[in-house]
Design a protein around this nucleic acid. Structure first.
Lengths: 188, 188
DNA sequence: AAGATTTCGAGGCAGCATGTCTCGTATTGA
DNA sequence: TCAATACGAGACATGCTGCCTCGAAATCTT
């Protein structure tokens, strides 16, 4: 491999410009052309390293929130409150835009699951397993219903995504944990 | 009001062409131009009566599934199985596309909630209220988590949307109903 | 030091969809 | 008969995409 190496400075400028434009204009109104101009980069530089706008923003998002996928020692309510707080702001709008775009781009959907949604699911699952007592139910179903409610509110916007929801969900999960489950694993 | 009346024949031809193209090419690949040609209509005729492609498809969808919002006498598992079966096919892909487009069009989101999502929520709520015994929990939260899981799988496609999910959810809700709730409304 | 290779910013180009406009025609009520 | 409106058809400007080229810069190999 010879030749001029990729400019890390240009890469950072482009990702930063993309995030800035998303905050200012909203994800759907951002164009690759606009990002290039905002970053002072050539358009071909973007097309060389990313296939689509969504790809570019996905990399920007993983750079941003990738660290928060580390195994959390927090309880369920805290974990959900922090997650909802993240999803309620500009980051949430971008992720919603990515999910929207994934409806017309299956390959993007795959990358989204691998890099963002999958790790987040794993983190929630770990928190549920550590609960005293553990719910003793199908954890994958619980994850689907908890994060399902989050995505439902994020995309449909019929109700806020706040700590009240985190509390309500936590209470419901505790109630499930205290109920006679299919495995007969009631505490005591 | 004088002048030539709106052609109901043209309206039906356009809606039908839109649905046909959605099945053939997928919602995101359908264009107003293509719909007009497929329907043998002028493009201005589409722009006169609908603001966007999403508006047009939303009308087509409500014409299709509007009747299924009638109060159902079915149990939870049957209701969910039927709903998931609807959402798992071509209709589901169209609705997913509408939800995706609503991320960049708040007015469309509003219409979507009013005409499709709201009525469906009400129907599920009614089914939950009629359960023996009723869950005795926050029904709105339950609706969020059940339809949340549905939307989550519809959009993220990490797991199938089938009758197995309907069964699992029904079992979990039954378990919640049988648990000591915040209102102390255990049967017996 | 010289040359090959690759990236860089910049911009031209065709292709496609959008949304507006115009045209001639058809259909209704006054 | 006449005004008003919808109809099918198509032209037009606009904006974004994705590919192409250009000259310059940066790095490795020889």
């Amino acid at each position: 491999m010879v030749g001029r190496p990729r400019s890390e400075q240009a890469r950072r400028a482009i990702l930063k410009a993309a995030l800035r434009l998303c905050e200012r204009d909203g994800y759907p109104n951002v164009t690759l052309k606009g990002i290039a101009e905002e970053a002072g980069a050539g358009r071909q530089t973007l097309y060389r390293w990313w296939d689509t706008k969504a790809d570019l923003l996905l990399e920007a998002m993983t750079d941003l929130v990738g660290s928060s996928h580390a195994p959390s020692q927090a309880g369920l309510e805290t974990f959900l409150s922090e997650t909802f707080a993240l999803a309620d702001g500009a980051i949430g709008r971008i992720v919603a835009g990515l999910m929207a775009e994934a409806q017309s781009d299956p390959a993007l959907g795959e990358r989204l699951r691998e890099r963002l949604i999958g790790p987040r699911r794993d983190a929630l699952r770990a928190v549920l397993e550590r609960m005293p007592p553990p719910p003793g139910a199908d954890l994958d179903l619980l994850v689907d219903m908890i994060f399902g409610a989050m995505w439902y509110r994020l995309l449909n916007r019929h109700a806020p995504l706040d700590s009240a929801l985190a509390g309500d969900i936590t209470a419901l999960v505790a109630r499930i944990a205290a109920s006679p489950g299919p495995h007969g694993d009631l505490p005591g």
